[in-house]
Amino acid sequence: MSLSKQQRQHLVAQLLERERVASQAQLVALLAERGVKATQATVSRDLEELGAVKIRVAGGETAYALPELPVQQIVPPDHLRRVLGEWAVAVAWSGPLVVVRTPPGSAHVVGSALDRSGLVGVVGTVAGDDTVLVVVEEAVGAATVGRRLRVLAGLDPEEDAEDAPVEGGAGE
């Protein structure tokens, strides 16, 4: 199978997280097992670009590992409160989705903070220019997450989602 560079590197990162990979040859073989043809030179470049390093593991052996990337680090709770307090102007929800409105050009800041917050129920976000779509776990519910985001943002947590001031929408 032919993967793009980004797809292949994503797979390499997953393999390094799940398997003890001691050599580039082993990584080439693991990729081949998954139907991905890659040379040792390609794998070497991928490891370099991903920032992989060799670490000593139990038993004194070495294996490749990826340092924790900032995007994967959970941010302190106060960070999310500060970001939402500064940038969220409205929060509404429907079904399994929460919509957070921001000033133009600010949605990516809120989306990134939410993605890295570790907030219970948040599956992920999609950020546009002034709108963040937050996908919520069904078991938790969008109303729960939406109200929590309103509290963190300093907005009225009791306001009904249908009455929330979501200005600048597509219909205006």
Rank of each mutant, 00 (worst) to 15 (best):
81 R>S: 09
4 S>A: 12
73 Q>V: 13
106 S>H: 15
36 V>G: 02
24 Q>Y: 08
22 A>Q: 12
125 T>A: 01
42 T>M: 09
43 V>T: 08
70 P>W: 09
24 Q>G: 10
24 Q>P: 07
71 V>L: 15
108 H>C: 07
119 L>W: 06
118 G>D: 05
60 G>I: 07
90 A>K: 01
41 A>W: 08
146 G>A: 13
124 G>Q: 07
39 T>R: 08
145 V>W: 01
92 A>S: 14
139 A>K: 12
49 E>Q: 15
33 E>T: 05
137 E>K: 04
2 S>Y: 14
121 G>N: 04
131 T>N: 02
77 P>E: 06
60 G>S: 10
7 Q>G: 11
125 T>L: 06
168 G>V: 09
21 V>P: 02
154 G>H: 09
168 G>W: 02
111 G>F: 00
3 L>Q: 08
77 P>T: 05
94 S>G: 15
162 E>W: 13
169 G>C: 11
19 E>L: 10
1 M>L: 14
165 P>Q: 04
81 R>V: 12
71 V>D: 10
142 A>V: 03
143 A>G: 07
8 R>V: 08
130 D>S: 09
105 G>V: 07
27 L>N: 00
45 R>V: 14
152 L>A: 01
172 E>D: 14
160 D>A: 14
126 V>Y: 11
88 A>N: 06
85 G>K: 06
98 V>D: 00
127 A>L: 04
152 L>S: 01
82 R>Y: 13
65 A>K: 01
62 T>P: 00
72 Q>Y: 13
167 E>Q: 12
33 E>Y: 06
19 E>V: 02
109 V>I: 15
139 A>G: 13
140 V>T: 11
171 G>Y: 09
14 Q>K: 10
134 V>C: 05
69 L>Y: 10
171 G>K: 10
